[in-house]
Structure formats: C-alpha cells, structure tokens
Write a protein that binds this DNA or RNA. Structure first.
Length: 195
DNA sequence: GTTCTAGAAC
DNA sequence: GTTCTAGAAC
C-alpha cells in the first residue's frame, strides 16, 4: 500500500484532469460569489489568490483570450476598463491602487489586475509573484492603451526577457530596501503599513 | 494559475 | 537540522 494516492484512482491508473486550471477565470466570472461589479461590457471579480489587501480582476464579457488578441477595435472597451477603474479608485480611497496587465498571462480571458501597492497578503509567496507585479512584467493600463492606439496590437515579449524579468533580484516597491529572501520581504512590507 | 517536495542554502 | 527556492505536475 502506497503512503499517498495522489491523483491516482483506486485501480492505480492515473486520473485524467477534466478541467484545465487555465480556464479558472471563465468559471469565476460566472460565480456571483466572486463578482464585485458588472456592466454590459465587463465584469470585476475578486482574485481567488489576492497578492495584496485589494486585488481585483477586470475582464470583458467578449471572448478575448489575452492582450495579444487586442486590436484597434477594442480601444472603446479599454476606455470602459478605465472608467470602471476610476470608480473602483473612488470606492477604495484609503488604498493606493494600480491597474495593469501581465506581459505573459497564464489564465485564459483578457484580465486587468487592479491591485493595492501594500502587497501584504498570505497568497504572496514566491519571487515570481513579486516580480510579476513590481517589474516591467506588469504593464500599466496606460501603456497598453498607448501601444494599441499607436501600433494596433500588443507585442509579445521574448522568452529571454520573460525569464529575466521574473528572475529580477528582490527590491521593495516602496523604498530602496533589497530583501534577502521572500520572508524578509514580507516582514519588511509590514513596516510600510503603519501610517 | 497553485501545489508539492527535493535538495540547495543557510 | 531547518528554511527556502525552484521545477514537475500527463
């Protein structure tokens, strides 16, 4: 008898994964428990694994899989993104928020992160988590809109740059402190909380 | 995207 | 010996 059955069935044959993890957002945006606000064009949900005190995702109802499927016809949609983001900023005046997209998204359906700058959360665990919000891997809303207006599409980054950005040495997003490791960073972030 | 855990780093 | 990171997951 094995100590752990893992994903194997009783018979010992590997269990097939029925739903791939990358469609998780498509399920969340239909779940009333996750929805924060909604319009004809977009829906805002709570991130299932928030990386800061406030962490929302804004997605279009239209089936756009990622930033790389955007074209000039989507500029109005992005303006709606900004309009709703401005509302959310007013509703969360006590937090400093930023809005943007990951350069290489993992989940299906275009999604804009709306995240507070504290970055205090038990779900923030890895250097990759940190760098995906604090380096150029995080593309600000304004930069996406600008590139779309100027070139009509969003360019993909090279695998080398992707790797380099996520491997950037840890650096506090609020001061010059360079943490030794993730626990060090998380302790340090707490020190920025007291106003 | 997360979970799990081997082995590197301390 | 314990903490921490990084790569596989069918």
């Amino acid at each position: 008898m094995s100590k752990r059955l893992g994903k194997e069935t009783v018979s010992g044959t590997p269990a097939k994964q029925s739903k791939h993890w990358s469609i998780g957002l498509l399920e969340s945006m239909r779940d009333p428990e996750c929805i924060v606000k909604q319009t004809k064009k977009i829906v805002v949900i709570r991130d299932k694994y928030p990386k800061a005190k406030i962490h929302y995702l804004m997605l279009p109802h239209e089936n756009i899989s990622s930033i790389h499927k955007l074209n000039s016809t989507h500029i109005d949609l992005l303006k709606e993104f900004n309009k709703i983001y401005e509302e959310i900023k007013i509703e969360n005046e006590d937090h400093s928020l930023k809005a943007g997209f990951h350069a290489v998204p993992s989940m299906q359906r275009l999604h804009m992160h709306i995240i507070s700058k504290d970055m205090v959360s038990p779900c923030l665990k890895t250097k990759m988590h940190w760098n995906s919000f604090t380096t150029d891997f995080f593309i600000n809303y304004e930069d996406i809109l600008k590139e779309l207006k100027e070139t009509g599409s969003i360019k993909k980054i090279s695998p080398d740059l992707h790797k380099k950005l996520l491997a950037t040495p840890l650096q506090c997003n609020q001061c010059s402190f360079k943490p030794k490791n993730m626990p060090d960073l998380k302790d340090h972030l707490m020190s920025h909380m007291n106003v």
